[in-house]
């Protein structure tokens, strides 16, 4: 029976559906092949049950690794994401996470230190005022969610490549790993980390990044899907090991380039 979207005043139906999709219990999430009549047809046509159980999931994950490589190959380090005029900014900019807005982590500004580690020379943590003193740029770009919707926002911060330079990072390393206050984590490839629009973001719409958008900082990556843009970043590590990420570990494609 089709679920018809009911319009409830004051509730964003888009967010409701989205939450419903995300808050599926874990066992359901793992079963990619559940309740699909079309799969019955597939079995019927092929005469074999290729889509039952772990083997299908293994094959799909292997193809996803292949797709990581294909996307890395397609990624042009000099190609900029389209930018937009201020009039194109989506208002209000949607809040989106695997938790409710009032459950967003609260990171105290006072005493905050960004931990940095891995293949870098200067491992001294960074206080906020020192971060805010870095040279900053503003971008108005499109945030594309893995769910399909998109929104245009304005972010201000330091180029991640510039920050990595100041850390004395070995940019021959393969990955940059982000650790987030709420337990979220994310690993990105070095070419994307060095892309001119990849930004360690301190401001949204000219104001200090509010809690809901990722205080104290997020990593804005307009060449990747939204979930590859970690919020509430508290640690950055340069590494040769792909440490995965919150959604990637559950089956979402790792590279997720745009």
């Amino acid at each position: 029976m089709p679920r018809i979207r009911k319009i409830i005043p004051g509730v964003d139906p888009k967010l409701l559906i989205k939450d419903a999709a995300k808050l599926l219990p874990n066992p359901t999430r793992r079963l990619f092949l559940r309740g699909a009549t079309s799969l019955g047809a597939l079995t019927f046509f092929t005469g074999c049950d290729i889509v039952d159980g772990d083997s299908a999931e293994r094959v799909l994950r292997r193809v996803s690794r292949f797709n990581d490589a294909a996307q890395a190959w397609l990624f042009d380090p000099n190609k900029l994401a389209p930018t937009y005029p201020a009039s194109a900014i989506t208002k209000p900019f949607p809040f989106n996470a695997y938790y409710q807005e009032d459950e967003a982590p609260e990171v105290a500004a006072e005493g905050f230190k960004l931990e940095v580690g891995g293949m870098i020379d200067n491992k001294e943590p960074w206080m906020l005022d020192r971060l805010y003193a870095l040279p900053q740029e503003t971008q108005i770009t499109r945030h594309v969610c893995v769910e399909g919707w998109s929104a245009i926002g304005q972010w201000t911060g330091v180029r991640l490549s510039e920050f990595l330079r100041r850390l004395g990072a070995d940019t021959r390393a393969k990955y940059v790993w982000f650790q987030c206050a709420e337990g979220y984590s994310n690993t990105i490839d070095m070419p994307t980390a060095l892309h001119p629009q990849t930004q360690l973001t301190f401001k949204f719409a000219d104001e200090i990044l509010p809690r809901k958008y990722g205080f104290p900082m997020k990593c804005r990556i307009p060449t990747k899907l939204g979930f590859k843009n970690p919020k509430h970043v508290i640690g950055i590590h340069v590494t040769d090991k792909n440490l995965g990420g919150y959604w990637e570990d559950q089956g979402y494609n790792w590279f997720s380039g745009l």
């Binding site: 979207r5 990619f32 092949l33």
Partner: peptide
């Protein structure tokens, strides 16, 4: 489509493939 519907309907779960968004994306991009 169901993860972010363009219109005021979604496709019944019984005729979709993948179980949830990540599974569907894996199938789609394979």
């Amino acid at each position: 489509y169901n993860a972010s519907p363009l219109f005021a309907f979604v496709f019944p779960k019984s005729i979709t493939l993948g179980g949830w968004l990540a599974g569907a994306l894996l199938w789609h991009f394979a």
